[in-house]
């Protein structure tokens, strides 16, 4: 019996290490070559369309023009990118903290849920673009109104996914922990919160991209800083190359935030079937 058991243990350990054995660059390449190929393909099509003169440069600037615009104005772009990044990250962080807090309150108190849910829903359905000017009136032309719009945009998916995560905990696991006589706080920290992470993190991915949108919408409405402002300026000067450069940077910002949460997922919820499936698929593709 013991022989069989330890035998199976060895097999299990080997298969676990087998998944990790392929070197990091190889795994990175296995995951990245498809999207990279697609990006290259898009660039090629873009380049062909503009090089053939099918579209006027003020309608669609060539990749080279866009790159040149970005390179010439690197300092200017960098400065405004920094502002938008700052607004986005602060807005996102606030949305996560406030959103999760509200989700926890709603999960633990039905009264809070009944009271707060309708308000959150109304706040969500009001178009943020329509109320953004109001924040400028209230909060001035600084970063405050931009952060506020970013928070408002990102808040809803955090609350919804946080609440869904806490609701999805296996009732039998909750029963089990109640036979262990632990405090609510301990139960939350060791059981409820970790169990809610898969849903919460997928909500955070949506929230991160919305936070970028929120910050840029805020910049459109007022102020003289940020990528939203750069776009408005470029648009006014019919400088399409610069507009495209700002758009690309803005997209990169969203993608970087998204990837950071991807990495957080990998570290925090590697145990979840959604992530396990991803690992298995990569292994097969890499083999």
């Amino acid at each position: 019996m013991t022989a069989v058991v330890s035998d199976r243990a060895t097999v299990a350990r080997q298969s676990r290490t087998a998944v990790r054995r392929s070197p990091a660059p190889a795994r990175w390449w296995a995951a990245a070559w498809r999207p990279l190929t697609l990006v290259v393909a898009v660039l090629v099509v873009w380049w062909v369309v503009t090089a053939q003169g099918w579209l006027a440069p003020y309608v669609l600037p060539s990749p080279a023009d866009t790159w040149a615009a970005a390179a010439e104005n690197a300092a200017y772009l960098g400065q405004h990118t920094w502002v938008t990044t700052y607004e986005t990250v602060i807005g996102f962080a606030l949305a996560v903290v406030i959103g999760e807090l509200v989700a926890v309150l709603m999960a633990y108190s039905p009264t809070t849920e009944r009271t707060v849910y309708p308000i959150i829903l109304v706040a969500q359905v009001v178009p943020k673009i329509a109320i953004a000017p109001l924040f400028v009136v209230w909060l001035g032309f600084g970063v405050a109104p931009k952060i506020t719009v970013a928070v408002l945009m990102a808040f809803f998916p955090v609350v919804i996914s946080g609440l869904a995560g806490l609701r999805s905990v296996d009732p039998e696991v909750i029963e089990l922990t109640s036979t262990m006589g632990a405090s609510r706080l301990k139960t939350f920290a060791k059981v409820m919160f970790p169990a809610s992470l898969p849903q919460l993190l997928s909500g955070l991915k949506v929230a991160a991209t919305l936070a970028v949108t929120g910050a840029v919408v805020g910049e459109f409405v007022g102020g003289n800083e940020g990528l939203g402002y750069v776009i408005l300026q470029a648009n006014g000067n019919i400088d399409t190359a610069m507009l495209f450069a700002a758009l690309v940077v803005m997209s990169l910002l969203g993608i970087v935030l998204f990837l950071i949460i991807e990495i957080a997922e990998r570290l925090l919820i590697g145990w979840h079937p959604s992530r396990r499936a991803a690992t298995a698929a990569t292994t097969v593709a890499g083999a």
């Binding site: 262990m180 059981v191 169990a195």
Partner: peptide
């Protein structure tokens, strides 16, 4: 429990020791 009701993010040992941590 009839179903094992283990926490998916904890190792076998971690699941057993949950009892100790909670208490």
């Amino acid at each position: 429990f009839q179903r094992a009701a283990l926490l998916d993010w904890r190792t076998a040992e971690g699941n057993i020791l949950l009892q100790a941590e909670m208490r």
